[in-house]
Design a protein around this nucleic acid. Sequence first.
RNA 1: GGCGUCGUGGCGGAGUGGUUACGCAGCGGUCUGCAAAACCGCGUACGCCGGUUCAAUUCCGGCCGACGCCU
Length: 314
Amino acid sequence: MSEPTMVRPVVMLMGPTGAGKTDLALELASDLPVEIVSVDSAMVYRGMDIGTGKPSAEILRQHPHHLVDILDPAQSYSAGQFVRDALHAIRDIHARGRLPLLVGGTMLYFRALRHGLAELPQADPQVRAAIDAEAAQQGWPALHTQLASIDPVAAARIQPNDGQRIQRALEVFRLSGRTMTDLHAATALPDPSLTFATYAWVPGDRERLYESIAGRFENMMAMGLMEEVDALYRRGDLHSRLPAIRSVGYRQLWEYLDGAVSRNQAVENAVLATRHLARRQLVWLRADRQTRWIDALESDARAQMHRYVAAFAD
RNA sequence: GGCGUCGUGGCGGAGUGGUUACGCAGCGGUCUGCAAAACCGCGUACGCCGGUUCAAUUCCGGCCGACGCCU
């Protein structure tokens, strides 16, 4: 007999890359009855450790992270798959009487879990290939026009050059016979029994964040990131169009291994790409009015987070 | 000291007697199964002082600075 008023708490710790979320989460996990669920589109891949800022194998043994190392880099993950996987992990953690602590920087995943995704057909390689071929032939703006004729609402909010989204909208229609706009209307919460407490862990000073990003990448190089990327490169079956290889850091070093740029240039590009990523993550966080911001640079920030999370851990 | 070339927004780099080049960085933003992705938006800058002209970043003169060559 379940009580209707019972809610199952989930704490979300979001932040830009380089903000120190991982360390904070580990700290919380060693003091409180929480289990960490990674919300990170790159840490899901095996063999991508240094560049994704994944905790060491030793630490992962002490504090198991859900949704880390679950895919081979040749595979593709998705927001939809993430929601399913996260829901399972959350269910299990609650069943153990513990608190799920979702930590990461993939804001689309957080949003999908909190607000839900419509029931849309999954990506289909065949259909995508067909659409790609058409785009190569006529250009994306032409396909955008095509989209406008079947789903004017979607076309109005998608830019004529946004191939990724035009393709998805067209794909959904070809697969289901219904427009994306139509299907979106039925968007529902993934699990209404969950309550989310959301926190944005953000260094209050952008300059400091960028400095931390540069230092962090330098450190990754010192830890052998180039060798890590080279190992993936040498497999021979991976290529630069794969989501895994397009990740920040990996993509740029891959270009160096391809001989397209110098090593220094690659490193510079990688740091730059990381800054851009952080900026986009901040945009998501700013747009989210329900989330409590915590300045990671404040001296009592950690203690504050401790209290917040402890309040849900009872 | 002489001759020559050059001096454009944070950087790179076009160009024109009157009409916002552009690229990068930076900043703002969009985001429903690739999201560490994809895409969109934002900059009147022309070394200084005069002159010519209806109008000068663009033409002329001087000055300053940089570089090169020469003595």
